[in-house]
Simulated scan of single mutants.
Amino acid sequence: MRDMAGDEDEVRHAYGDNIGWRLKGYSRQHNGASISEREITREEFVRIRPFFDAEDNPWLVDLHQVVPEAWHDVEKVLGPLDPEQDYYVTGQPLDWDKDPVQAAREVLDERYPLARAAFLGGSVASGTYTANSDLDMVVIVHDLPGAFRETFVHRGWPVELFCHTVESFQDFVARDTKDRRPPLLHMCAEGFLMLDADGTGQRMRAEARVLLDAGPPPATTTELEDRRYGTTDLLEDLIGARDDDELLFVAARLLTCVGELALVVQNRWLGHGKWLMRRLRDAKEDEIVDSYRALVRGEGPERFIAVVEHVLAAAGGRMEDGYRRNATPR
């Protein structure tokens, strides 16, 4: 039996205060859904936890880890258990699956009661949120000394808040559009319009949709050459890599460069991290990701190299000989 002195504090530290626990029983005779299920209290969980090791997978605890000598003590806490069932204790957060829109509205009511418009974007607005999702909010106010971004927690939800006036919003959108990454446009055009006090929200949503549908500005010759040069340079590093770790690091950087180049050629919006992957998927550029995945799995870089060469050819070919950029005057 493990030494679990101060166990309740350990449970609170490891899992947070907003975890609920459930006892599930499955038939030993056949596979399928659970045949018994009931809630157990935090106190009950704390009392039985000394009998098993939950470090490997704390969200799914197999009661068969309990030694036979201690089984009677477990039943004293949980009550009689059916010997024909295999039992598991599962934990799940209690707060993250509460209505995120309501939580976002509370933020508005408490912090910005006089806001003109507010949008809730990201995975919450699309209904694909998870326990790790946050509330991405754009709030438009009338009088603001300066636009700002703020991160905080409300009712268990991490909040990423972008506060603007209409004018500062437009300034940021213009800058982001030039860079081909307009997160504010996406939040307003595709998110949930939570508040529209005076028609500002509807106007901003309509304008955002028009701008998104129009796509980014066409790439200039200079931008395209710069991107071709950067991709070519990393491709040469990849081909010449003789160290496995070096290969992985170069390939990771090249994945971003070639992915962005492919999107620029198609005149599509860009994105960082997971959003770059989603933009590539929308553009039917799955082979870039698939070939990179093959490299990471140890299948060799040849497939990834061939895909990069193909993207470069579509962009105008490799850019090496004759590339020159003058330094900006100081």
Rank of each mutant, 00 (worst) to 15 (best):
G230Q: 08
L224P: 02
R203S: 13
R205Y: 14
R205G: 03
E207C: 01
P182F: 15
P183T: 10
T220W: 05
T200Q: 11
D226H: 15
G199F: 12
A189L: 05
L211M: 14
L211C: 02
T231S: 06
G201N: 04
T221E: 13
H186W: 14
A208Q: 02
T220Q: 05
L184N: 08
M187H: 08
L185H: 05
A189H: 02
M204E: 07
G199E: 11
E207F: 09
G199N: 09
Y229V: 03
A219F: 05
A214V: 06
R228S: 04
M204H: 06
P217E: 15
G191D: 00
A214H: 13
F192N: 07
G201E: 01
L195V: 07
P217G: 11
L184C: 01
T231N: 04
R228C: 02
P183D: 07
Q202P: 00
A214T: 12
P216V: 07
P216M: 08
G191I: 00
A206P: 00
R203G: 12
P216W: 09
G201P: 02
T220L: 09
G215P: 09
T222P: 00
D198L: 08
G230Y: 11
M194Y: 07
T231V: 06
Y229Q: 09
Y229C: 01
L211R: 12
E223G: 03
R228D: 05
A214S: 15
D226L: 13
G230W: 14
L193K: 06
C188R: 04
M194N: 03
C188S: 10
A197L: 12
M204D: 01
D196T: 10
M204N: 01
D226M: 12
P218R: 02
G201L: 03
L184V: 10
P182N: 10
M187A: 07
L193S: 06
A208N: 03
P217Q: 12
L224D: 02
P182I: 12
T220A: 07
G215S: 11
R209N: 03
M204I: 15
T231R: 01
Y229D: 02
L193N: 08
A219N: 01
G199I: 09
T220M: 09
A219C: 09
Q202S: 14
T221Q: 12
T231H: 01
P183I: 11
L211G: 00
E190A: 06
D213C: 00
P183G: 05
P183R: 06
L211T: 11
L193Y: 11
P218I: 04
P217D: 15
G191L: 01
A219V: 13
T220G: 13
T200N: 10
E223A: 08
D213M: 07
P217L: 15
L184Y: 13
M204R: 02
T231K: 00
T221S: 12
D198C: 11
P217Y: 11
R203C: 10
R228Q: 06
E207Q: 13
R228P: 02
P216N: 07
A197V: 06
M194V: 10
T221C: 04
D226Y: 13
L184F: 15
R209D: 10
G215F: 14
R228E: 07
T222C: 04
L185M: 12
T221I: 08
P183N: 12
L224A: 04
T231P: 01
R227W: 14
Y229S: 00
T222H: 09
A208T: 03
L212C: 01
R205L: 05
L185R: 03
C188D: 00
